[in-house]
Design a protein around this nucleic acid. Structure first.
Lengths: 392, 392
DNA sequence: TTCTTTTATTGACGGCGGAAAATAATGGCC
DNA sequence: GGCCATTATTTTCCGCCGTCAATAAAAGAA
């Protein structure tokens, strides 16, 4: 199939050129002058950097110029041609693989998911290859080349080496996933931790655009956190960071699988909430869906459990805000959109526990559809293709 | 006095040159080849950058070459000439001003402190000017020029603007301290938060040398924290960061002046420890010195209070480690050196509460003599003089 | 002495980004 | 319509920085 097709490379030789491209990518259509101001470069430098990018088709001149000035020569806006290239993002959980086909602007064109019968690296790799094959087929129909594959896995991932150091859900240790996937798919592969991947997506295409310091908190089975400091996603000295789930909220709280008590996750994780409702109401709650339904019906025990969870998350976020002073915290989770009381509780607890930063830190809540995880993986693939490791 | 003396400027025009200098500054004498490797530059670039620095007297060729290779031309090591320039660092607390005269390598030559009669900006400025005047006199005796003044203040400080936004201890709001001190002393002035200043000193001259991710935790009247992420000191989006003192350790704990309960500072701050000992033993403990003495004598109540405090600090540090994955945490405080059980308790609590990072995060304890705060201020002055904002 | 080995320096080269000037594209004004 | 003011973009030229390749330097070994 792919045979000896040479991997296409991005024509941005210098860091400045990459920065110019990412500026346009994140901040929509911009005139060259606006790009120059944002990137802190001279207009001439922008002109020179933009030309090869237009010639290669990654940037295009915007056809209509809506924002023309009252006076003077009208500006020509430039934007990224999303249709120029496609990327595939894959998120592997313990029992499912989610894959999306996105364009260069990280807009999802196709989403697929398949169950995962076996967690062995080989079996997972085979499933990933199959899913990628299907998505490549879709891409072939569109006649647009796929330039990269991103894979997101929860756990301890060495992004630079493309190795999954340790993934509890998959029960993997030191799996050189990037290399393996590259040989089976023939695509350039980027591998990263799932929450960090999601954070990259927010940084470049979401609510973190233009911010140099923000946090993404994911609420679901586990509680995760991606941090952006100084315009770069924090990976920690050893690849582990953002473990907000195991921040202690109440030393007398319920035991956590990590060995401590009262971790955020032990109070606000899906399983913890279900367990709490069972304990306080005596009802046989099967799962999260039922717990949410109970809370919506006004069941006191369920509401209390969610209030407790919201409180724990709010405290956890306040801890992040106190330590890092982010400009914004983006809370995202499956249940959040449908479940406002939860979010409100988070806000209240945050406001109470945040020391000096509460009024200066914007807390946003946004839903997290399951494809969003895979989109994050695609974002890392795009980032890796552009080869721009830091940006504002 | 100083009249129209032009401020001396550092002859490192490019970021690369500044990086080369800071590499030599932090990593002691190095051969040009070693510098090139560390800085990721060609040997030729190092040669060219080093020459003007030697001509200006900031670098010198090391006289004796101890590390000569078995074979080949012996290497010429280069080091920073500390005696080339002096800097003054000043730390202002609520009731005292501490000043040090350091050389370019941030070694303390003279330390002075004077009580602070009044907290009004004008009065503080006058005291600072007097102290600086004395230290300038000492510098004049040495015949070495003083090239900068750094002032460290606790609270919310905008380093870039040189403005103290809000300092609770001094009861200041929006005081343009850098500008004021520059006009009264005639020196270039850098102003920063005290804990961040201390962190810069550790990063360049202390236990953080060579690390891109570490934390400094100060234990005393308050509990502070300076963070280095991606090789840069974290200031947060709004100038507030590192508020580890108000991380909640126990929601049912004692009330804190910040309005919450069970903050680290409300358990492990000096005042909290003294109060705890009073409550549990009924003894009239006057201050920290007495509390420490009681603990050393084996008084059960005092030991319990310190154990509690150590536990709280350890948990707070674990939170930092879980979130940021630093390579090292440097705990520094006045009482620490004399007070090992405290430190041990911190370690234990950290090891228990740190999720996955405990075994990979090095926890160091080091004493914090009172001049160390002022030395941090001098470090920011040096950094500001070199004009290198980030480094590894 | 001469060769080998390692370090440091030199000089040519290329590329990038900035400054300034030129060019382009409009609307307004006479 | 011609001219001018205004703003955007491009061109041209220039300086500077860092790399490359070659060379010098400073030993010990043969």
């Amino acid at each position: 199939m792919s045979s000896t097709r040479r991997a296409e490379t991005f024509p941005a030789s210098t860091p400045a050129a990459a920065q110019i491209f990412t500026t346009v990518l994140s901040h929509g259509p911009l005139t060259r002058l606006e790009v120059a101001r944002r990137a802190g470069l001279s207009p001439a430098a922008v002109t020179k950097a933009v030309r090869p990018l237009i010639e290669a088709g990654y940037l295009v001149e915007e056809a209509d110029e809506p924002a023309r000035p009252a006076l003077g020569r009208p500006a020509n806006q430039v934007r990224v041609d999303g249709g120029r290239a496609l990327f595939i993002g894959v998120k592997a959980t313990g029992d499912e693989i989610i894959g999306v086909l996105t364009d260069l602007c990280c807009r999802i064109h196709v989403a697929r998911h398949t169950p995962l019968p076996d967690r062995e690296p080989k079996a997972v790799l085979a499933s990933v290859a199959e899913l990628v094959g299907e998505l490549l087929g879709e891409a072939g129909d569109l006649g647009v080349p796929v330039l990269g594959l991103g894979i997101a896995v929860s756990g301890d991932v060495d992004r630079g080496a493309g190795v999954v150091r340790y993934s509890p859900f998959l029960e993997w240790r030191d799996v050189p996933l990037a290399e393996l996937a590259a040989t089976t798919t023939g695509l350039p592969v980027a591998v990263d931790n799932d929450v960090r991947a999601l954070t990259v997506a927010e940084q470049w295409f979401g609510a973190g655009v233009g911010l140099s310091d923000f946090a993404v908190v994911t609420v679901g089975a586990g509680i995760g956190c991606g941090l952006v400091v100084h315009g770069r996603v924090v990976a920690g000295a050893h690849g582990v960071a953002g473990e907000i789930g195991h921040v202690t909220v109440d030393p007398a709280g319920p035991p956590c699988h990590c060995g401590n008590r009262g971790c955020v996750e032990a109070i606000a994780g899906d399983a913890a909430i279900v367990r709490r409702i069972r304990e306080t109401t005596g009802l046989e709650v099967a799962g999260t869906a039922e717990a949410v339904a109970l809370a919506h019906q006004g069941n006191a025990g369920a509401r209390e459990a969610y209030a407790r969870a919201g409180d724990a998350i709010g405290r956890g976020i306040a801890t992040v805000a106190n330590l890092l002073g982010p400009e914004r915290v983006i809370i995202s989770g499956e249940g959040l959109a449908a479940h406002d009381p939860f979010a409100e509780q988070i806000r209240d607890a945050f406001a109470a526990a945040a020391f000096g930063s509460a009024d200066r830190c914007d807390v946003q809540t946004r839903p997290l559809p399951f494809e969003e995880w895979a989109r994050g993986a695609a974002a890392t693939a795009i980032q890796s293709f552009i080869r721009a490791d830091d940006q504002r």
